[in-house]
Computed example of a mutant assay.
Amino acid sequence: MSVAPLDQESLDAIRDGVRSVCQNYSAEYWRGIDEQQGFPDAFVTELTEAGWLAAMIPEAFGGSGLGLAEASVILEEVNRCGGNAGFVHGQMYNMATLLKHGSETQKAEILPRLASGELRLQSMAVTEPTAGTDTTQIKTTAIKRGDKYVINGQKVWISRVQHSDLMILLARTTPLAEVARKSEGMSIFLVDLHQAIDNGMSVQPISNMVGHETNELFFDELELPEESLIGEEGKGFRYILDGLNAERTLIAAECIGDGRWFIDKARHYAGERVVFGRPIGQNQGVQFPIAEAHIEVEAADLMRWQACQAFDAGQPAGASANMAKYLAAKASWEAANVCLQTHGGFGFATEYDVERKFRETRLYQVAPISTNLILSYVAEHLLDLPRSF
């Protein structure tokens, strides 16, 4: 697939707009959020009020009607400015599921309120402790009783529940033993978190190395109205893939933003740090790794645009989204290592922010899908090799 040219002027305008918000939140601000394992509520609120989180919402519902390409630039720029888009990216890809498969009533009721900032849709509950990335093996059930679905089960690594009003939930509505294919019989629901928490759903925060607000969820006879079902019952796995392809592409953009932050940080330090009477960036042993990291980030960026193009054109985007995420996560992690090495001991000092961003970008080698699972996907679906698991 060739990559269609994008309107560079429009993308530059988006970058400038996002940067104008980000410049109000210094490195000290993000350092403080990290130290407290807090949530950047002021930043999220301002980004929302500026309309950036409504980028993919159609204009008819109060949004900008932009595509995944433009949304990816928004999140890339947050990370490139030294922030952490992981606190806001959920609304972008969760909306993809609602936009494609929600009813007209659901969209009319929810999308305008998301666009205005009245509501936040930052959480998606798919992963379970025993299933991991083998989503077809989830054990959380949704049993229809009268005009309600009753939810029982457990989820883990579910982010931003404390700062979200709504959550996308994947649960099994037909037992695994009763379906022809294991990907069938799952459905997705829109959960009102204010009604659910302490009323059949409990939340246990998980402390972690990147301060990422994430949790374990427990469901015990949680009742959901039947109108909370998104799309048709039993087709939830297929529906959720649309959101996951958007998620992987957006994460790729964030990693590209991280990679460019690391490279800029490294090259400036290498140009200013003088040892043995010359800037360390004059040494090939320092400058070559920085140059190599730059090349890798730029290459990953091309795959990001290919994934965006496929998604926005309504074409199958699984392969390009997975490969974009793989390449970008790998490139940002390599750039992080180069940046830390360039700074030497100062790279470990919190005041330089390298160690914070180092930890943040490391996450994307593991989540939202591990690099090994992407390699398995490519081997099976693109290279026609035997399934490895």
Rank of each mutant, 00 (worst) to 15 (best):
M1D: 13
V161I: 14
I74A: 01
I138S: 05
P40C: 05
V161Q: 06
G257N: 11
L68V: 11
G347C: 03
L327K: 14
F311W: 08
R120Q: 10
G32Q: 14
L111I: 06
Q36I: 02
V156S: 13
D41G: 10
Y326Q: 14
G83W: 02
A293Q: 06
G231W: 07
G132K: 14
G243C: 08
N94V: 09
I280Y: 04
E109S: 11
E9P: 00
Q287H: 12
T214G: 03
F348I: 08
S159A: 13
R160P: 00
T249C: 11
R362G: 12
E59F: 01
K144G: 01
G17A: 13
T127C: 14
D198I: 00
V366N: 11
T140W: 02
I256N: 10
G285F: 05
S228L: 04
R113G: 03
S103N: 06
A55Q: 08
T371N: 13
E104G: 09
P129W: 09
N322L: 07
T127Y: 10
Q8F: 05
K325N: 14
D41S: 15
W52I: 07
G277V: 03
L121C: 09
S10Y: 11
V3F: 02
F389R: 15
P225N: 13
Q306Y: 01
M124K: 09
S72P: 00
S320W: 00
A310L: 11
W305I: 03
P112Y: 06
I280D: 06
A319F: 00
R278G: 10
N152M: 04
A317W: 00
A313V: 00
T127W: 08
N215K: 04
M1A: 15
